[in-house]
């Protein structure tokens, strides 16, 4: 398995992408998590709107583990909002664990509204086993 994740990717940023928070998407999310739709946006909803594409970053589907997730909310996200976000690699590091060498990649997403005010930041840490790469 070839893994394209290394320290040189730190700071590499995606192009800005705009998405609209629609009632339909939020309703589908609330149904999936099993709560009534009341017009508010659940705190983790936004991650389902993000399509993370950073030049040079290829995360393998198989074996990758979502290790940590963090959100910082600067203002409430509402139905009808248009969010423009960029994603960048914040941290890449390697650790030797019981299961061999693992790579930790932290990806930060920052989302802004049409008034260019920051709405949220999200930081996802993905753990990738480096099989056969010891």
């Amino acid at each position: 398995m070839k893994i394209m994740v290394d320290e040189e990717l730190i700071g590499v940023e995606s192009r800005p992408v705009s998405v609209k928070v629609t009632a339909e998407r939020v309703r589908r999310f609330t149904e999936a998590i099993g709560v009534p739709f009341d017009g508010t946006v659940p705190p983790t909803f936004i991650i389902t709107m993000l399509d993370i594409k950073i030049p040079g970053l290829e995360l393998p589907l198989e074996g990758a583990i979502h290790g940590e997730q963090k959100f910082i909310y600067h203002r409430p996200l509402q139905i009808g909002d248009t969010i423009t976000y960029t994603t960048s690699i914040k941290q890449v590091y390697h650790r030797q664990g019981k299961l061999g060498k693992m790579t930790f990649v932290s990806v930060e997403t920052k989302g802004y509204n049409l008034a260019r005010e920051q709405v949220f930041a999200g930081i996802s840490t993905v753990i990738i086993p480096r099989k056969g790469d010891e």
Partner: peptide, 28 residues
């Protein structure tokens, strides 16, 4: 993220309209 969403439901049901979440983080 589904498990984190369930934890989020615990928070939103608890705070209702009486507050807002400004930070939320988990380690799986």
């Amino acid at each position: 993220m589904l498990t984190m969403a369930q934890l989020g439901v615990m928070l939103t049901e608890w705070i209702g309209q009486e507050g807002v979440i400004t930070r939320f983080e988990v380690r799986f």
